[in-house]
Structure formats: C-alpha cells, structure tokens
C-alpha cells in the first residue's frame, strides 16, 4: 500500500515513529520538514515507486496524503 510505504520512508528519513504519521500529517507544519527533508523524501519515494515527481507538484505537497495521491496517480 502506497500510504504504508510513504509512512515508512518518512519515518526513516526523519527519525520518527510511523505511528506519528497519518494521511493528514502536514510535512512542514507538523513534521518541520525543511527543503533537504523534502528533497530526500521525494527522491526516496521516486526510487521506491519508480515515478518521477514533478518540481511543481512538490511545491504543492502539504500533507502526507498529497504525496500518496500523487504517487497513486502517477504509478505505472
């Protein structure tokens, strides 16, 4: 499931527990993700799911759910 894998990636990169992450968790506001975190997350997600995530899309990512929705939409 995409959400589970995304939660795993975020938990790993940001050293937090998967239990703390929900579909509504806001990357910047709740997790304090900075630009390096976002880049690491996006690149890890790209590798995991075999998608290329567009620059403009990344700017629009607010919640974990946004990332999941994008991946689900663009997965081959």
């Amino acid at each position: 499931m995409v959400l589970e894998k995304v939660k795993q990636i975020i938990a790993g990169k940001m050293s937090i527990s998967e239990d703390e992450i929900t579909v509504d968790t806001k990357l910047k506001e709740d997790l304090q993700a900075d630009s390096l975190d976002m880049v690491e997350l996006v690149m890890a997600a790209e590798e995991e799911f075999g998608v290329e995530i567009e620059e403009d899309a990344v700017r629009e990512f607010v919640t974990v759910g946004d990332v999941v929705a994008y991946i689900e939409k663009n997965q081959k």
Binding site: S35, V39, V42, M43, I53, E55, V58
Partner: peptide, 8 residues
C-alpha cells in the same frame, strides 16, 4: 530556490 532537476 532549489530545483529538483539540479539536485538529481
């Protein structure tokens, strides 16, 4: 600002 394409 940073560009994903450049980072890649």
């Amino acid at each position: 600002g940073i560009k994903l394409s450049e980072v890649r």
